[in-house]
């Protein structure tokens, strides 16, 4: 079966300068991912998981090396092109949910569609569908401060999925959730991965998440130390 490669990372290096010193967060990372994968970057704190996720998400630039995401070289993208790539094709899920506090659940999920300039009817349909995926239609008019942690993260998943992106990048999505909520979120993501063929990439050191992954890329000190296909 032919597979389409949507992410190609080769020899990626990222240095952070702190005064005269520099810290190498990524040190020659190479890997590739195909559409529909359910991958996790796994490793201890400071191993470079979030930095790698940020570069793939066009939020940051590498110091050297290349990251090609959906046929676009991230390092040469102009700010506007990077924003467009994120808006069109990438969904983000954060550890602290990062919901817009003054918006309702509905408005939070609707936001990426507003940026995509979708029409009213299309937006309403997509938002309600995304809320249905995460089981939160009843909370559509609640504010983020009226939600539990698990509900907030489900809204974040709905917001990431509402535009049906090619890639969803999830940075420690279960770190603030208890076991039951983590299970619910991950099962839901797996289901969306199966149904919509969206590529999910996690940055995590949470064992609960690791057990759901199809592929585990182990990072340590900014290097790939293992790349394991899971059963």
């Amino acid at each position: 079966m032919a597979t389409s490669q949507i992410i190609t990372v080769s020899n990626l290096v990222k240095d952070y300068f702190m005064g005269r010193q520099f810290f190498r967060a990524l040190n020659g990372i190479t890997f590739s991912a195909v559409k529909g994968e359910f991958i996790g970057f796994v490793g201890p704190s400071g191993s470079g998981k979030t930095t790698l996720l940020n570069i793939i998400g066009a939020l940051d630039n590498p110091t050297s090396g290349e990251a090609i995401v959906l046929n676009k070289p991230v390092s040469t993208l102009h700010q506007k092109e990077a924003a467009r790539l994120r808006n069109d094709s990438i969904g983000f899920i954060f550890q602290t949910y990062n919901l817009l506090p003054v918006y309702t659940v509905y408005e939070n999920v609707e936001f990426p569609l507003l940026l995509l300039k979708k029409g009213n009817a299309e937006r309403e349909h997509a938002v309600m569908q995304a809320l249905e995926w995460v089981g939160l239609t009843a909370k559509a008019h609640s504010r983020p401060n009226q939600l539990s942690g698990g509900e907030s993260q489900r809204v974040a998943v709905a917001r990431a999925m509402v535009k049906v992106p090619e890639i969803v990048l999830a940075d420690e999505p279960t770190a603030n959730l208890d076991a039951a909520n983590s299970h619910n979120i991950l099962t839901m993501m797996q289901r969306l991965n199966d149904e919509l063929k969206t590529t999910f990439i996690f940055a995590t050191h949470d064992e609960k998440v690791i057990s759901y992954l199809h592929r585990k890329i182990v990072l340590n000190d900014g290097r790939v130390v293992d790349d394991i296909m899971m059963n």
């Binding site: 808006n87 817009l100 990426p112 940026l115 917001r159």
Partner: peptide
């Protein structure tokens, strides 16, 4: 954080 989120969602600076 909201600014960062807006950028992650597809807005430019």
């Amino acid at each position: 954080k909201e600014m960062g989120t807006l950028m992650a969602l597809g807005m430019t600076r």
